[in-house]
Computed example of a mutant assay.
Amino acid sequence: MSGILDSVNQRTQLVGQNRLELLLFRLNGRQRFGINVFKVREVLQCPPLTSMPKLNTLVRGVAHIRGQTISVIDLSMATGGRRIEDLSNAFIVIAEYNRSVQGFLVGAVERIINTNWDAIMPPPQGTGRASYLTAVTEVENELIEILDVEKILNEISPLNADVSADVAEGLTTEGKEDKIIFIADDSAVARNQVKKALTTLGLEIELAKNGLEALNRLKEIAEEYGDVTNRVGVLVSDIEMPEMDGYTLTAEIKNTPQLQKLHVVLHTSLSGVFNQAMVQKVGADDFIAKFHPDELATAVQKWLMKDCE
């Protein structure tokens, strides 16, 4: 176990084309879950938790770790399960999402596995925790569930997706009224947040649930319009998505003649461990860490108005 925990920080620096590493853990039962190691700062046995007044019921307390006060969310309770009772044998996965650091209380931590995004699939309909799943995969003939952490966090502390009045007033899409904004994100919550923020631009918006779906749809548009940029102004894409991640999607776009002029903005909760070299390698035009509606709308407007080269 100590070897696994010690290796997490080193592995968070790894990025590969359409591949990922998952840290496997359990909550209360036998079901195994996975979290992208790239989002994990460290894993440690649950320290003493301090109760605070008016905390959300899903937050078991706060932990003081390396000079930082971190809220600890019971992942079992957050997904509709029983609370994790035995804190002395529990673990905290400290992760960074959407420009903030959270602790996720889990029952047990197992190991790290290497896999590819094309082995990560959308959740099947009717799965018990389907409303909290963003993807599933199979390891050793067992289903691994990948939780929609953005939905969990939004339920605990909802994000404001509204663009401020001052920024909205300065946004213009004059001359681009015939363009659409394309959004690719596997989290329904994140898709809706991005859509709400970008609706301020007053253009048609099209959505895709993963990179492969987005790529196929962009190719269809390109076939119809001769070049995808004759219809699509900007693509805003998450990085972590089932079947095809945002890095691979971007690389495919930049290597396809009818798509390569499309401006791509990568928009991801991988904020603290973002790898600028990888974004440059695949040819993305911009990177924005989730989630700040003013920053996102301003960046999309900039690339929308920039002439395709």
Results as ranks from 00 to 15, higher is better:
residue 22 L to H: 09
residue 100 S to Y: 08
residue 277 A to K: 15
residue 153 L to M: 04
residue 308 C to P: 10
residue 48 P to H: 11
residue 300 V to E: 04
residue 189 V to I: 12
residue 113 I to K: 10
residue 173 T to W: 09
residue 165 A to V: 11
residue 148 D to Y: 05
residue 243 E to M: 13
residue 38 F to I: 12
residue 243 E to L: 15
residue 250 T to I: 07
residue 28 N to E: 00
residue 192 N to Q: 07
residue 163 V to D: 03
residue 50 T to N: 08
residue 65 I to L: 13
residue 220 E to A: 06
residue 68 Q to I: 03
residue 67 G to R: 08
residue 72 V to Y: 01
residue 68 Q to K: 14
residue 298 T to Y: 12
residue 272 G to P: 03
residue 221 I to Q: 01
residue 124 P to S: 12
residue 1 M to H: 13
residue 175 G to V: 12
residue 130 A to S: 11
residue 199 T to H: 07
residue 270 L to F: 05
residue 17 Q to N: 13
residue 279 V to T: 13
residue 298 T to F: 09
residue 267 H to C: 12
residue 56 N to R: 09
residue 32 R to E: 00
residue 36 N to S: 08
residue 219 K to T: 00
residue 218 L to I: 06
residue 197 A to E: 04
residue 286 D to L: 06
residue 136 V to D: 01
residue 209 K to R: 11
residue 11 R to S: 02
residue 22 L to R: 13
residue 117 W to L: 09
residue 303 W to V: 07
residue 240 E to L: 10
residue 153 L to V: 10
residue 63 A to C: 06
residue 51 S to D: 03
residue 308 C to S: 11
residue 223 E to M: 14
residue 10 Q to Y: 12
residue 195 K to D: 04
residue 191 R to C: 05
residue 259 L to I: 10
residue 45 Q to T: 09
residue 161 A to H: 00
residue 150 E to V: 08
residue 60 R to H: 06
residue 230 N to Q: 15
residue 144 I to M: 07
residue 183 I to A: 05
residue 4 I to D: 01
residue 229 T to A: 02
residue 182 F to P: 06
residue 231 R to K: 15
residue 67 G to D: 02
residue 110 E to N: 08
residue 132 Y to F: 15
residue 114 N to W: 07
residue 182 F to G: 00
residue 168 A to S: 11
residue 308 C to K: 11
residue 99 R to P: 03
residue 158 P to D: 03
residue 170 G to N: 11
residue 237 S to V: 05
residue 84 I to D: 04
residue 253 I to Y: 05
residue 206 E to G: 06
residue 241 M to H: 12
residue 217 R to Y: 04
residue 306 K to P: 00
residue 66 R to G: 03
residue 145 E to A: 09
residue 45 Q to L: 08
residue 284 A to N: 10
residue 304 L to H: 04
residue 103 G to S: 03
residue 143 L to G: 06
residue 146 I to V: 15
residue 94 I to C: 04
residue 80 G to F: 14
residue 230 N to L: 06
residue 259 L to C: 05
residue 74 D to A: 06
residue 228 V to Y: 05
residue 41 R to V: 06
residue 118 D to A: 07
residue 162 D to H: 00
residue 136 V to F: 12
